[in-house]
Design a protein around this nucleic acid. Structure first.
Length: 271
DNA sequence: ATGGTCGGCAACCGA
């Protein structure tokens, strides 16, 4: 069976519900993972998604900030929410697809929104950066994020780190900019290695090639100089590595009317 | 070197 899955930091699901609908109607992913939904679960536009054919929805929202959601055409058996750094922030949700989803074998999906970390890349001076580093450390040591043997696990989300040189428009100029400082990049890659995850984008696109999924709002024209960063990621466990049949970054979405600063990233797996 | 723009929600915080 073919599974297509999109991750997208939507920066308010209520404000951009028409953009999400536009994306869904053209891309029709089986599963959509959203971050920064920015609303409590009672305010989530459930009906709109159900009308679009997505009957199965798992929510972890909070008022005004953060918030993650998994929106699926296929039924899942269980939902789990984890907290990190002893904060109640809505930054994680996972689901497990079992027999009802009709894949060959079960599949686990994690959706993350890693803290952005503020502006100052010094954990002593900036508690938000300290939080981000601790969050990444906890992702590394978190047992459920260590797929074993033939486990078919996927981890997606806005990880707010662009770990490789060509994940940013200028490695040199961003070395002291939060999202690309060496300590964050090391910690994200350490979490990836500890879980033996495969970074789908970098399995498909060589490290020598620039790849971005985010362009700042703080530019009069986001296309000038193409000053992007690759903050949104799709990781798969070893058992899924060879099932990837497609990978797409919908750069065009950054030019849509009242866009998110992130664009949808989609993987297709033959499962 | 600096500041630039968003969204939530009603003064700033977080990104």
């Amino acid at each position: 069976m073919r599974l297509s899955l999109t991750t997208w930091n939507i920066n308010s699901v209520r404000l951009r519900i028409d953009l999400v609908a536009k994306f869904i109607k053209s891309a029709r992913p089986d599963v959509l993972c959203l971050q920064e939904t920015k609303c409590i679960d009672d305010a989530f536009p459930l009906k709109r998604f159900k009308r679009l054919g997505y009957e199965h929805i798992a929510l972890n929202g909070q008022k005004g900030y953060h918030g993650v959601a998994i929106i699926s055409k296929l039924p899942f058996e269980t939902t789990d929410i984890r907290t990190f750094c002893d904060k109640i922030d809505s930054r994680h949700i996972s689901v497990a697809f079992g027999d009802k989803a009709q894949f060959a074998k079960p599949l686990v999906l994690h959706n993350f929104y890693v803290p952005a970390g503020g502006d100052v890349p010094d954990p002593e001076a900036n508690p938000k950066f300290d939080h981000k580093l601790k969050f990444l450390d906890e992702m590394k040591t978190c047992e459920p994020l260590h797929p074993r043997g033939e486990d078919r696990h996927i981890l997606v989300g806005d990880l707010n780190v662009a770990p490789h040189e060509n994940d940013v428009w200028s490695h040199k100029q961003l070395l002291k900019v939060v999202s690309h400082t060496p300590i964050e990049c090391e910690k994200l890659l350490a979490a990836q290695e500890r879980g033996q995850w495969f970074d789908v984008a970098r399995e498909r696109i060589p490290l020598s090639e620039k790849v971005y999924t985010w362009w700042s709002y703080r530019a009069a024209d986001w296309t000038v100089g193409d000053r992007g960063r690759r903050l949104d990621h799709i990781w798969v466990s070893r058992a899924l590595k060879n099932t990837v049949s497609d990978f797409q970054i919908l750069r065009d979405a950054r030019a849509w009317d009242r866009p998110s600063d992130h664009v949808p990233v989609t993987v297709t797996l033959e499962v």
